[in-house]
């Protein structure tokens, strides 16, 4: 137990707002080992790639959500944004536009949705839950409007190839996910953007008094979230081969689960993208492993909820002990 204790309290987890929850890392290790024993299919290269492919879409959307939550905000509109972005790109391709134009327009749509969220929250001071809940409904409606409620089957090979193609054995969508994470993992600790996300989430008034334009930075954070949601929507369509106005319904809950599991605080100021990534790995490893182990899907949900609770509870207890000590 001493070894375990020193492992859990080691400084390798980082400090302060960007510290990882060692309980989460331990859970990943334990689940990984357990699943390797439970199912002979789990611990194979193809299957681990399956896990990666399955988590790509939630994973990309989780980047923006992580930033928003660390900055003390919330975005419920990402599922709708994903659907609308996919619909717009598919519709534009059907109308004869090129794939580059369609993708740019889709990402642009996501950024506009994020900007609208940001203006409502930052300048009109509407509660983020309410503002993005309203946007969830509005954007979902617009996704239906784009195609009059019909789904569009994607025929563009470039787009489809993103969902099915590979480079050196690694699926493109997984590479895109890794690139997005690398970009933000490099950006956040080195940029004022990253620094101010934490400052605003920690104490927005202090940030403002320090001369930071919290309104403009918040706007930028929500725009980033809209952009990653739109990219996730494009990847979802690439993977399923169709764009549906009803796609990604309820996705925001998966995304938020991963972000919270990863250690981001709903009070703002704390969390890391690396934590989110580990949270995603845990969630999707469980999905994958329990299916391979032929666990009925209802029980899978119970297990997932239980693990989320355990990880968060552990973090609370550990922090409580540190604070009291």
């Amino acid at each position: 137990m001493n070894v375990l204790n020193s492992f859990m309290n080691s400084r390798i987890w980082g400090r302060g707002a960007t510290a990882l929850n060692p309980g989460l890392v331990l859970a990943v290790v334990v689940v990984f080992i357990a699943l390797s024993f439970i199912s002979p299919y789990f611990l194979t290269a193809t299957n681990l790639l399956n896990v990666a492919k399955a988590l790509v879409i939630v994973g990309i959307a989780a980047v923006g959500e992580t930033l928003v939550i660390i900055a003390g905000g919330f975005d419920l509109s990402i599922g709708s944004t994903m659907a609308a972005a996919g619909m717009l790109a598919a519709y534009m391709l059907d109308s004869g536009f090129g794939v580059a134009a369609a993708f740019c327009a889709a990402i642009g749509l996501g950024m506009s949705i994020g900007a609208t969220n940001g203006v409502l929250i930052s300048y009109f001071r509407i509660n983020p839950l309410i503002a993005t809940l309203a946007m969830l409904a509005i954007i979902r409606g617009l996704a239906f409007v784009i195609s009059n409620g019909r789904e569009i089957v994607i025929t563009n090979q470039t787009w489809l190839n993103l969902g099915t193609g590979k480079l050196a054995g690694i699926p493109y969508i997984v590479l895109i996910l890794v690139l997005v994470y690398l970009a933000f993992l490099l950006l956040l600790p080195r940029s004022t953007f990253g620094r101010y996300i934490y400052a605003i989430g920690s104490n927005a008034r202090a940030a403002r008094l320090a001369g930071i334009s919290t309104q403009r930075w918040r706007l930028l954070i929500y725009i980033t979230c809209g952009a990653t949601a739109a990219l996730a929507g494009l990847m979802l369509a690439a993977r399923t081969g169709n764009a549906r106005p009803a796609a990604a319904m309820g996705f925001e809950l998966d995304v938020i689960t991963a972000v919270i599991l990863g250690g981001a605080s709903l009070k703002g100021g704390r969390g890391t993208l690396l934590g989110t990534a580990i949270g995603l790995i845990l969630l999707f490893m469980i999905n994958n492993g329990l299916t391979l182990a032929q666990v009925p899907s209802f029980w899978q949900q119970v297990v997932k909820g239980g693990i989320l609770l355990a990880a968060v509870l552990y973090d609370e207890l550990r922090r409580g002990r540190v604070d009291d000590g």
Partner: peptide, 16 residues
């Protein structure tokens, strides 16, 4: 769910 159907297909293949 569409994306879950794709994931399931991968898992069924995985299990032979």
């Amino acid at each position: 769910k569409a994306d879950q159907a794709v994931t399931c297909a991968e898992l069924l293949v995985q299990q032979g």
